[in-house]
Structures are given as C-alpha cells and as structure tokens.
Amino acid sequence: MEAARFLGPDMGRYAWRPFVLATDLSSGEYRIVSRATDTEGNTQPANWTENERGYGNASWTDHGVTITVS
C-alpha cells in the first residue's frame, strides 16, 4: 500500500478529489484500487453492504482496474 498525493484545491467535505501516485512497477499484472481515509483515520469498507435500492456503495474493491506491465 502506498499513499497518493492530492491534486488541485480542496473543494469541501463532500467534493470529489483527484489524486496521483507515481510508482515504478516491475513486469506483471496488477490490480489497482483506491481506498479513502478521513482525517480521523476511518477507511472505506472493503465490501459492499446491501442497502435499499442499492445506493450508498462506499466499498473500494468494486472499483479497481487490472493492468499489465510488460
């Protein structure tokens, strides 16, 4: 796990915030995910919790991408 760096201004508590992480990866396949941590140290849950109408998915595992470095 590595910490990313925020880009641009902080637009408030509920605003989306772009971020970047520069890293060197060896050849292979990687699953890239991001997990938010707030100022009190609380982190997003790994798994989705069933809720009415499916709103409120705050999990991080559902939103990753897989990349291949050659």
Score class of each variant (00 low, 15 high):
residue 12 G to D: 05
residue 32 I to H: 02
residue 64 G to L: 04
residue 34 S to C: 12
residue 3 A to G: 05
residue 17 R to Q: 15
residue 20 V to N: 01
residue 58 A to Q: 11
residue 61 T to H: 11
residue 64 G to Q: 09
residue 25 L to C: 07
residue 61 T to W: 09
residue 11 M to V: 03
residue 53 R to I: 05
residue 24 D to Q: 14
residue 70 S to D: 12
residue 21 L to M: 06
residue 42 N to F: 10
residue 66 T to V: 15
residue 55 Y to D: 08
residue 25 L to G: 07
residue 1 M to P: 09
residue 26 S to P: 08
residue 7 L to E: 15
residue 13 R to K: 13
residue 38 D to M: 04
residue 27 S to P: 15
residue 7 L to T: 14
residue 49 T to P: 03
residue 5 R to D: 12
residue 3 A to S: 13
residue 15 A to E: 12
residue 4 A to P: 01
residue 41 G to T: 09
residue 28 G to V: 02
residue 56 G to A: 04
residue 13 R to G: 06
residue 37 T to H: 04
residue 64 G to D: 06
residue 69 V to M: 11
residue 14 Y to V: 01
residue 26 S to R: 13
residue 23 T to D: 03
residue 37 T to E: 15
residue 38 D to Y: 06
residue 44 Q to H: 02
residue 22 A to E: 11
residue 31 R to A: 14
residue 1 M to Q: 10
residue 9 P to N: 08
residue 7 L to R: 13
residue 35 R to L: 01
residue 11 M to Q: 11
residue 68 T to K: 12
residue 3 A to K: 13
residue 7 L to C: 08
residue 66 T to I: 14
residue 45 P to L: 07
residue 1 M to H: 07
residue 59 S to A: 14
residue 43 T to E: 13
residue 18 P to A: 03
residue 30 Y to A: 07
residue 18 P to C: 04
residue 64 G to F: 04
residue 55 Y to R: 10
residue 49 T to Y: 06
residue 37 T to C: 12
residue 10 D to M: 01
residue 27 S to E: 11
residue 8 G to I: 03
residue 24 D to M: 08
residue 22 A to F: 02
residue 61 T to V: 13
residue 48 W to Y: 10
residue 2 E to N: 09
residue 67 I to G: 01
residue 24 D to T: 14
residue 17 R to K: 13
residue 16 W to Q: 07
residue 6 F to D: 10
residue 69 V to I: 15
residue 21 L to S: 05
residue 57 N to R: 07
residue 58 A to H: 12
residue 18 P to T: 03
residue 46 A to D: 10
residue 45 P to I: 03
residue 58 A to T: 14
residue 54 G to N: 08
residue 3 A to Y: 03
residue 48 W to G: 00
residue 20 V to P: 00
residue 51 N to A: 15
residue 4 A to S: 10
residue 53 R to E: 09
residue 25 L to Q: 10
residue 62 D to R: 01
residue 51 N to C: 05
residue 37 T to W: 04
residue 37 T to R: 15
residue 34 S to W: 13
residue 31 R to Y: 09
residue 45 P to Y: 07
residue 34 S to P: 01
residue 60 W to E: 00
residue 61 T to R: 15
residue 49 T to D: 09
residue 17 R to I: 02
residue 62 D to L: 00
residue 31 R to I: 09
residue 43 T to Y: 10
residue 68 T to D: 02
residue 23 T to F: 01
residue 36 A to S: 14
residue 9 P to D: 11
residue 1 M to D: 10
residue 67 I to R: 01
residue 35 R to G: 00
residue 32 I to F: 01
residue 3 A to P: 04
residue 64 G to T: 03
residue 2 E to R: 11
residue 36 A to Y: 11
residue 25 L to Y: 03
residue 6 F to I: 02
